[in-house]
Every structure is written in structure tokens, then in C-alpha cells.
Amino acid sequence: MTLPLFRPEDDPGPNFLNLLRKLGQDPFAGPELGDKRAVEITHATTIAAIRYADGVVMAGDRRATAGSSIAHRAMEKVQPADRHSGVAFAGSAGIGMEMVRVFQLQLEHYEKVEGSAVSLEGKANQLSQLLKSNLAMAMQGFVVVPLFAGYDHRQKRGRIFSFDPTGGRYEETEFHADGSGGRDARTTIKLGWREGLDRNSAVELAVQALYEAADEDSATGGPDTVRGIYPTVATITIAGFERLAESDVAERFASVIAAKSRKGLSL
């Protein structure tokens, strides 16, 4: 590889995707595909974000499916985008993972080239542009729907942005959940959400939502006590992106299950 040197009029600026394109490395330039059913597409499933007093809780299950079979059991769908924001995705796993990777690099690249971080809204817009680049693939069935949340230092609160496959960007004021189990998760959160939730209640609500989603949706993975794989739960506050310890998440799922069992619901 050589040192990329651009004339001022050719310089891609702080945009990592444009830089990759200049170098002929567009990660989303897929060839025209014929019959999409010829390939087994893995899909990722339930992701949620809940705003609370100190910021946002983000959560996602770990299962990826290919048709009706389980493709992967320990996928990380919720990841830090940078120090003060997180990104999660539902949909086509390969493209979703790539999109998250390019997004993380884009934010870091901008920060290093420009010497300052992108604003939270700017980050959401960047993600929307990445989605738009994938539109051709989305039309062929490789749909990715991300969810973005972060702590806004200017407004001093957590903010959540949801997206559609065409790159449409919508700010959510309270909470959002996406993916095949998103509807069940949203309903659960809707019943428990109130303004000014504390961290503990917000995390509990996220765990409950994922439990209900996994209960109703075959493509969403629940707590896997046999292998010790639990959904990802993370908080984003002024202190940054912090992932909850797996043992903590395990305990919270155990108490949800215990409460359900007492009510006489079978697991």
C-alpha cells in the first residue's frame, strides 16, 4: 500500500467511506445479484434502546438465523460507535457487521483528521448515508436496519435515532426497538417506560423487553443458560459507553424468569 496523497481538490476530507471509494475499495459496491434465494442470508434480530435519566440503555439479543436454522449464537449486535455513542443493527448480518465497522472507523477517522469529534446528530446523519450506499443491496433482500443512540454533550441528555432501510433517519424521544422481535420489545417497553427512569429500572426494562421478544419471535435468542450466552446490554452516559457484565445480565434474566415462574407461566 502506498501513502495516499491527494491534491486539495481531490481530497476526500474527513470522510472514510469517500476515502475508500477514492482508493477503489467501496465496501458496499456489490455486484448485481441474480436470484437472491440462491444464497442463505443470515439475519440478526431484536435490538432496543431506552432513554433514562442519565442517558440511554441499549440492548440486543445474540442470535443470527439463516432461514429457520440458527446460524450463530453469540453475535454482538450492540457495539460502541465511539466513546459516547452506540450502534446496533437488525437484518442481514454480513452487511450489518460491515456497516457497523465502517461507521466506527468513519467516526474515528473524522476525529483524527479534523481534530474534533462529530456532533451526535452528525453521527446519525453519517449512518444514514452509509445506509443509503447500501440501497442497491437492500433492494435485493440484504436489508439492514440500524439503531443509533448516544449521549449528547451539548444538550446533556441521551438521544436515540431509528432508521429505515432507505436511510431515513428518525429521532425517537423515549425508546425504540427494531428487528423481527422489535414489535414485542416495543410493546413491553411502552408499558414500563416513564420519564426519568433510573439506570436500574431502565436496564430491567430492556432485559424484560428482550425476554418477551425472544418468547414470541423464533429468530430472537433468549438467555442461553447452557452455554452462558446472554443478550448484550450497555449504558451510554456522560461517562461513555459501558457494557454490563455478563454475570449482571445473567442475574437479571434469572430474576425475570423467577418472577414469571411464580406467576405460573411455563418457560
Binding site: M1, R101, L105
Partner: peptide, 11 residues
């Protein structure tokens, strides 16, 4: 250029 080189290589 160094940042661009490093980020692309890491990618």
C-alpha cells in the same frame, strides 16, 4: 495522509 493510510490499512 498518515491518518488516511493507517485507517485504510487497518480496515
Amino acid at each position: 495522509s498518515g491518518v488516511q493510510y493507517a485507517d485504510v490499512k487497518g480496515f
